[in-house]
Computed example of a mutant assay.
Amino acid sequence: MIGLEFKEASVIEEAYAKINLFLEVLGKRHDGYHGIRSVMQTVSLHDTVNVRLSESGISMTCSDPALDCGASNLCIKAAKAFSSACGGVGAEITLTKVIPMQAGLGGGSADAAAVLRAMNFLCGCPFTVRELCRIGAKVGADVPFCVSGGTALAEGIGEILTPLPALPHCRVVICAGMPPVSTPEAYGRLDRLPPPSGDPYPPFAAALESGTLADIGKRLYNRFEDTFPQSAVRGFMIQSGAYGALISGSGSAVFGLFPETPAAEKARAVLERSGYTAFLCRPVSGSEVCRNQKKQ
């Protein structure tokens, strides 16, 4: 732990969910992973991570007894990666779960990213956000984005990030409660489909650049829609005033982009009464995610 300056005994860090405004799967690579081109957006739905530094050892507890808190958990992997990078600092992690699991919302990656930001803050920020992203890439493909947050193009397997114009003011309704989707199963289904025709990214990028929510909503795209359509929920959101609706990641959660709070809240309430789990949230900027971190 050479050169570290310990700032606080413990810190609480929000672990923000992500949605995919655009997701194209480019094919299977030689290393077995799938290449992607995705536009990810941080939203205010979040888990909460409480981290306390210790002289040695890494431990974890969680509010959800169904979650494995052992060595395979991404929070544990993140803490070990940070410890390895800065000389052996330990951590006690307490995770409070809210983000639905296996829903395409990046909950595990968000939790790991929050652990990295928390440990970095507690140690006096020895790493910049960019350096934290490099540490996060060793933990999981979506962790670098979840570390930095905001709106970004993710390429490679998700670890190559390019900042993009922010999503304009809106309210985001997220609907979960559908049967969970295994990511390997979803990719397996996709591999059996013929490749799509045309390139949907340039129209989406132009819409995002315009800053017009209605245009962005029309250009939302997710290749996994062909394998796991949620047409009933998406159709309901559009009928309720959303400018666009889509599954997130490989599913099964669906999100809708609403211009104003009243229609969004009404849609969320109807979905809840219909037996789903629904959340009303907003886009979150990278500066909000990384407010306690050293700049690039």
Rank of each mutant, 00 (worst) to 15 (best):
E8P: 01
V11A: 12
V11I: 15
I12M: 09
I19H: 01
L21A: 07
H30D: 15
Y33D: 04
I36P: 04
S38N: 05
S38Y: 08
V39Y: 04
L45A: 08
V49S: 14
N50R: 15
A66W: 07
D68W: 12
S72C: 11
N73H: 09
I76W: 12
A81R: 14
S83A: 10
G87R: 06
V89C: 13
A91E: 04
L95E: 09
I99E: 09
G106V: 01
D111I: 06
A113R: 03
A113G: 03
L122V: 00
C125Y: 03
V129A: 10
L132H: 01
L132V: 00
V147P: 03
G150K: 00
A154R: 02
I157D: 00
H169A: 14
V172E: 02
P179W: 01
P179G: 00
P180M: 03
V181Y: 05
E185W: 11
R189I: 04
S197R: 13
D199L: 04
L208P: 02
D215N: 10
I216K: 02
K218P: 11
Y221K: 02
N222H: 06
R223C: 11
Q230P: 10
Q230A: 15
R234I: 14
R234M: 14
M237Q: 07
I238H: 15
Q239E: 15
S240L: 08
G241N: 07
A242E: 06
G244Y: 12
A245Y: 05
G249N: 04
V254S: 12
F255W: 04
P262D: 05
E265W: 08
E272A: 13
S285Y: 13
G286T: 08
K294G: 05
K295Y: 13
Q296H: 11
